[in-house]
C-alpha cells in the first residue's frame, strides 16, 4: 500500500509537471531557443549574444541554454524546446554524429533547426548549417605559423575535441601547409578538448618531455591561452603560439607580443545570419540559401589586432 501511495504521489507530481509544461507552451509561437556549448569560452558566449540580439530585434522571445558539450544534456534541451513549442532552434551542437538524432527529433516535432559553427554528418534534417571555413582559416594560421617559425624547428600541436569535426578539419588545414616545410618537425600532439586548463597541463607535460619546442599550434584560442600561460610560467616566452577563433583574450596577448597570431571566425556574424535565416524560413517558408554555408576566416596578427572586438573585425 505504501508503495501504491508512493507511486500515486509520483504520478501526481508527474501530472503537475506536465501541466506546467503545457502552460508554458501556450506561448505565441515566437520563441527561439538558442543552444550552445558552455559560455566560459567567450566564442560561445558571443554566438549566444549575437543570436539573442538579432532574435530580439526581429521580435522573438529567446531561451538561451548550454549543453556543456554533453550530447545527453543536449537531448534534454531539445526536449525542452519541443515542450515549449519553440518556433525554431539555433544550435551549436555537441557532436557531429551524436547530434543527428537530436536535430531529427526536433524536426519530427515540427521545429526547424539552424546550426552554427559546427556541422552534423547528415544533410536534410537541419534547415541550415552555417560554419566557418575552418580549412581556409587553418591554412592561413598554418602559413603564418610557418613564417613566424622561420620555416624550421620542432613544434607541438594542441587539438580540440575529437567528436567535433572542427578539431579534425583545423588540424588538417594546419598540416596541409606546415607539412610542406620539411624542416618543421611535429614532436608532440595532444588533444586538450578545447579546454584552457587542460591545455595548461598538457603544455606543461609536453614542455617537460620536449624542452626543444619552438612553437605551438593550437586548434582554438582557449587552448592557446592555456598553452601561453604555461609557457610564460616556464619562462619560455620565446615559443611561437598560434590560435584559432579570434577572441579578445588572444587579441590582447597578440598585442602584448605573447601570442603570434590567431584566425578570426566571424562567430557574431554567423549567429546573426542563422537567426535571419530562421526568420526568413518562418515567415516566407524558405531561407533562400543552401543548407550548408561556409563563411571565410581572417588572419589576425599585430597588424590588425586593434580592429578586432567580440569576434568582429572593424572595416
Amino acid at each position: 500500500m505504501t508503495l501504491l501511495k508512493a507511486l500515486g504521489g509520483a504520478a501526481i507530481v508527474a501530472l503537475a509537471a506536465l501541466t506546467s509544461v503545457d502552460a508554458m507552451a501556450a506561448g505565441n509561437g515566437k520563441l527561439l531557443v538558442i543552444i550552445t556549448p558552455p559560455h566560459n569560452n567567450p566564442f560561445f558566449a558571443t554566438e549566444a549574444d549575437g543570436a539573442e540580439a538579432k532574435a530580439k530585434e526581429l521580435g522573438y522571445e529567446t531561451l538561451v541554454l548550454s549543453h556543456d558539450d554533453d550530447a545527453s544534456k543536449q537531448n534534454q534541451l531539445i526536449d525542452t524546446a519541443i515542450a515549449r513549442k519553440a518556433a525554431a532552434i539555433i544550435l551549436d551542437n555537441a557532436g557531429a554524429d551524436a547530434s543527428i538524432e537530436a536535430v531529427q527529433k526536433a524536426k519530427t516535432a515540427g521545429i526547424p533547426s539552424f546550426l552554427i559553427d559546427r556541422e552534423i554528418n547528415k544533410t536534410g534534417i537541419a534547415v541550415a548549417q552555417i560554419v566557418s571555413n575552418n580549412y581556409q582559416g587553418a591554412t592561413l594560421g598554418g602559413q603564418e605559423f610557418a613564417k613566424r617559425m622561420g620555416e624550421k624547428g620542432p613544434y607541438a600541436e594542441l587539438t580540440g575535441k575529437e567528436s567535433d569535426t572542427n578539431a579534425g578539419i583545423r588540424s588538417k588545414g594546419y598540416h596541409d601547409v606546415i607539412d610542406q616545410f620539411s624542416d618543421l618537425k611535429l614532436v608532440a600532439k595532444q588533444s586538450a578538448n578545447w579546454s584552457q586548463t587542460e591545455a595548461y597541463s598538457k603544455m606543461e607535460s609536453m614542455l617537460q618531455a620536449h624542452p626543444e619546442i619552438k612553437g605551438v599550434i593550437s586548434g582554438n584560442d582557449t587552448m592557446a591561452m592555456g598553452a601561453s600561460a604555461a609557457l610564460q610560467a616556464a619562462h619560455r616566452g620565446d615559443v611561437i603560439v598560434v590560435g584559432f577563433d579570434g577572441s579578445n583574450d588572444v587579441r590582447d596577448q597578440i598585442k602584448a607580443g605573447k601570442i603570434a597570431a590567431t584566425v578570426l571566425q566571424p562567430a557574431f556574424q554567423i549567429a546573426q545570419l542563422a537567426v535571419e535565416q530562421a526568420d526568413a524560413y518562418l515567415t516566407k517558408g524558405s531561407t533562400g540559401k543552401p543548407e550548408k554555408q561556409s563563411i571565410d576566416c581572417v588572419l589576425i596578427t599585430k597588424d590588425n589586432a586593434d580592429k578586432l572586438n567580440n569576434f568582429t573585425l572593424a572595416k
Binding site: A96, E119, N121, K122, T123, V131, N133, N134, Y135, T165, N166, G168, I169, K172, G173, D176, P290, E291, K292, Q293, S294
Partner: peptide
Amino acid sequence: QFGDFVNQIQYAQVS
C-alpha cells in the same frame, strides 16, 4: 557544392 559532401573534411580534401 559544400552540401554535396558529408562534412568540411571531405570538402577540404576535394580542394
